[in-house]
Simulated scan of single mutants.
Amino acid sequence: MGSTRRVLLVGIEPDDRAAITERLSQLETTVSVLSAADAEAALSSLEAPPEPIDCLVSAHRLAGMDGIAFSRERTRRLASPTVPFVLFVTDGSEALAASALEAGVSGYVRREGPHATDRLVERIRPEIEPQRPEKTAPGAVFDNCRRELRWERERIEDVRHALSHDLRSPLNVATGYLQYVSGDFDTSGGPDEEAVGKVSSALGRIDSFLDDVNALIQQGHPVDSADTVELAAVARSGWTDIDTGSAHLRVLDDTRPALGSAVADRERLLGLFRELYRNAIEHGDSGVTVEVGGLPDGFYVEDDGPGIEKNKLEDVFRIGVSDHRDRTGFGLARVRHVAAAHYWDVSIGESPLEGTRIEITGTESVE
């Protein structure tokens, strides 16, 4: 049987925590399951644990810092950050998996489907069972992660193909038939014409949705070709590409820390700025001011608009979250994916302008 093994669950939802605990109790090895609400609580317990922790399982979405930032902070703060770290993600992607691997995460498991808990426990199992000869092989962990990344890439490509082709065809057929039948109605504005108008609008939104999903997947692929770009110049260029109305842009390129330069895919970085600007303009008052400035390891984009309600802060980067009925809610999700493709971090910070402040860090800017 061996000695008791200890697994620390960080930020795992109660239902998942109960299912994981139940599944671990079925192993031959005796397992004690501990929990921490967030990364800071986990770091505190890891700094001076009463008993050694054999495996760490963390959700990606955590209060304060996400799971990837948690892994980096663990490496920075702990004298011996050698405890195996498994990331249990709800909204995964190829770029997120690559970022996790780069941050020192040893395992990556998606929380989807009926057997997610079983997959997670099977990933934990080699870390807590007494006999683990394969663990000493230097390339074993990397090979496992590489297989997971390859599977993730193939799965995402299947989804992209389905959206780009398999769903596009019936959408085009429906649009064509709608145009055909709409010619049978007069322009009196009766209920039939109104219904056709609503159907046409709905099909248009589906069409935009498919375009957005396809773009989101493409932009989330890890960047494999990048150049050194001037952040101030790209920030100004992105502003000229969109309808800014009476909004104002302020680029702080002569302050400290300076915006400087970053190694990036210029087109994707332009898209990131455009989405941040659109978000500020669409949610701000008329004449909103948008400010771009430097951070010690990145940059920020903030505005003096009404800001984001506290109960919505955790959701703003999720797909489909939007306060506008004519928007599909991909803007800030696209920002997150572009950042992840560069292995950057994106978060919401406190804005001196009392609006919304988005911070992009990990760019290793060069002044």
Score class of each variant (00 low, 15 high):
residue 338 V to H: 10
residue 64 G to K: 01
residue 309 E to A: 11
residue 17 R to G: 00
residue 133 P to V: 06
residue 7 V to F: 02
residue 316 V to H: 09
residue 29 T to G: 01
residue 14 P to E: 00
residue 71 S to Q: 07
residue 147 R to E: 14
residue 15 D to L: 09
residue 141 V to D: 12
residue 188 S to C: 09
residue 170 P to R: 05
residue 231 L to I: 05
residue 99 S to Y: 08
residue 362 G to L: 00
residue 342 H to R: 12
residue 78 L to D: 06
residue 226 A to D: 11
residue 322 S to H: 09
residue 54 D to M: 03
residue 181 V to E: 06
residue 88 F to C: 02
residue 294 G to P: 01
residue 216 L to P: 01
residue 51 E to W: 07
residue 335 V to L: 02
residue 235 A to T: 03
residue 15 D to I: 12
residue 6 R to W: 02
residue 329 G to S: 03
residue 106 S to C: 09
residue 190 G to K: 06
residue 193 E to Y: 09
residue 91 D to Q: 13
residue 363 T to S: 08
residue 270 L to S: 12
residue 237 S to H: 14
residue 176 G to D: 09
residue 301 V to Y: 02
residue 69 A to Q: 08
residue 64 G to V: 04
residue 75 T to L: 15
residue 18 A to R: 07
residue 57 V to N: 03
residue 278 R to G: 09
residue 76 R to H: 05
residue 355 G to T: 08
residue 42 A to I: 05
residue 92 G to S: 06
residue 86 V to A: 01
residue 134 E to A: 14
residue 20 I to F: 00
residue 188 S to W: 10
residue 287 G to E: 07
residue 253 D to R: 03
residue 19 A to D: 03
residue 204 G to R: 00
residue 45 S to K: 11
residue 355 G to A: 06
residue 61 R to E: 14
residue 362 G to N: 00
residue 319 I to G: 08
residue 321 V to H: 10
residue 322 S to M: 07
residue 93 S to M: 02
residue 106 S to K: 12
residue 126 P to Y: 05
residue 129 E to V: 13
residue 47 E to S: 14
residue 9 L to V: 04
residue 9 L to G: 01
residue 214 N to R: 15
residue 317 F to D: 01
residue 174 A to T: 04
residue 119 R to Y: 08
residue 103 A to V: 06
residue 152 E to D: 12
residue 147 R to D: 14
residue 350 E to W: 07
residue 208 S to Q: 13
residue 87 L to N: 09
residue 63 A to C: 08
residue 98 A to T: 11
residue 189 G to D: 09
residue 4 T to I: 11
residue 16 D to F: 09
residue 306 P to D: 07
residue 38 D to A: 02
residue 253 D to A: 06
residue 80 S to P: 11
residue 243 D to E: 15
residue 350 E to Q: 15
residue 195 A to K: 15
residue 252 L to R: 14
residue 136 T to Q: 15
residue 289 T to I: 09
residue 125 R to N: 06
residue 314 E to A: 15
residue 215 A to D: 13
residue 135 K to S: 15
residue 115 H to K: 13
residue 69 A to H: 07
residue 192 D to R: 10
residue 317 F to T: 01
residue 359 E to I: 10
residue 162 A to P: 14
residue 182 S to W: 06
residue 65 M to E: 06
residue 349 G to E: 00
residue 119 R to H: 12
residue 287 G to Y: 13
residue 267 E to F: 10
residue 246 S to D: 12
residue 243 D to N: 14
residue 40 E to V: 13
residue 211 D to C: 13
residue 187 T to G: 12
residue 275 E to N: 11
residue 279 N to L: 05
